[in-house]
Amino acid sequence: MTRIKICGLTREEDIAYVNELKPDYVGFVFATSKRQITPKKAIKLIEKLDRRIKKVGVFVNPSMEEARRIAEACDLDVLQFHGEEKPEDIIGLPRETWKSFRIKNQESFQELEAYSVGGYLLDTYVKGQQGGTGKAFDWNIDSDINKNKMIILAGGLSSENVEEAVEKMKPHVVDVSSGVETDGCKDFEKIKKFIEKVRGSHDS
């Protein structure tokens, strides 16, 4: 079963939505972004989060000391890195680590081999952007990377295309943010529909 991550939670309403709908992971963005929140705010939201949902912290080129400090303060389960972090930078952290890779073509997959991390997040290459573009890459690119790596698929996912994405890429986790938003805010019905599509439940 493909697991689900709802990323970019910023409000108490978002926490209420996910507590009811039960994705496997939620993401809190600590990097510069329209969804960025402070560790202090994240702690307050996490206090209300269902304990069965795993907490992912999203970082772009942080100092590892900062990442460790936020992980500890927020009791994060996973640290997700979206910058130019080198393989040696993210070894030995006290949490599971995921590294993001911006996919442009078949050659982009070669970069994954340099890293030894818990999860490999595939996002869409857009010049000058580290993620959160709302764009999907070509899922027809032939790759067997999911055979020996935990793959998290991000970039342009929504309830309209996630079934196709799962069928073609067979990721272990699908990661959505803007695809479950309306006017920049998380939308309960969109999250519900996305989760139903992934889990194959079309009950009303």
Rank of each mutant, 00 (worst) to 15 (best):
L45F: 00
D187I: 04
L121I: 12
A165E: 00
V173S: 00
R51P: 10
E65D: 13
G119I: 06
K170I: 13
V18G: 05
F194W: 07
F109I: 14
K190E: 13
N146A: 13
I103T: 04
W139M: 06
I43M: 10
C74F: 02
F109G: 05
P23D: 05
I103M: 02
N161K: 09
T182C: 10
G184R: 09
K55N: 12
L112T: 13
K40D: 15
K170T: 13
D50V: 09
G8T: 09
A16L: 09
E85Q: 07
D144V: 12
Y120N: 01
V198R: 01
E189A: 14
L49S: 13
K192R: 14
A73K: 06
Y125K: 10
E196Y: 11
K40L: 15
F30S: 04
F28G: 14
V26N: 11
D123T: 02
I195L: 12
R51M: 08
D144L: 13
D50M: 09
R35D: 06
G179M: 00
G184Q: 07
P87A: 10
E20N: 06
N61C: 06
I15A: 04
K190L: 12
K99W: 05
G155A: 08
F137W: 08
K190I: 06
D144P: 15
V56N: 03
R69L: 13
K168F: 02
N161L: 04
E20Y: 01
K149N: 11
E160Y: 00
E13D: 14
K99D: 00
